[in-house]
Amino acid sequence: MLELTGVDVTVSGLKILDGVSMKVPAGSITGLIGPNGAGKTTAFNVVSGFVRANSGTVTFKGKSINHVKTHQLAKLGISRTLQAVGLFPTLTVLENVMLGATSRNKAGILSESLALPWVDKEQRVIRQKSVEILRRFTLDSVMDAMPGELPYPTQKKVALARALVSEPDLLLLDEPAGGVGAEEIRELSALLQQLTPECTVLLVEHHMELVMEVCDLIWVLDAGKIIASGTPAQIRSNQDVLTAYLGEAEVS
């Protein structure tokens, strides 16, 4: 589904990613882990077009997306969440989610400006879809709330709903378990397993239990280089990984 080949990223003389090659097989939940500062988020940003690779290629469904702009990815079927939640503070929860669904919209500004009937219909469909997904996430009671009024874990759920409402083929999750409680993590784990194999998931996460539980395949990044890859069991017993993590986080 997604493939990085020999990706280098250098920022002001510092090599953040050094020849990173990794694959995310279709229908899998793939994890990307590594100690702080290993370059995980940068790898994510390369995929989502925020950071350009100095060399190497990123392909999605066999096509290069090196030069695709961030906002065009949604149309291709790639959706992501942000580490800092990134909900729009002045839009209601429903509006936030609706925006996630508009990426495949066809209405142009001219037909929008005249509120032509089919634009309305499209809008209604989007609204319906958004309400449905909010219901599925048991968020329908806070539909009209502002994101700032909600507790942090709920905000994260809204962000996840927003990323999923466009029915992406590939979902990039940036630390979905960060700052949320055990209960929500269990929910998250169940949800991720429900999503596949229709949707492929790439996960950057510090919470090892979750990663080990849901991932089919794990890539380990350290100091900008891939040092290991394999199933959770293989990673757990890998000596390099243990060394890289020593003093960083307890490997369960």
Binding site: L82, P89, L99, S166
Partner: peptide
């Protein structure tokens, strides 16, 4: 509100 988040949801 947030240009980065906007581009993530497919708005240029």
């Amino acid at each position: 509100d947030d240009p980065v988040a906007a581009s993530v949801v497919g708005i240029s």
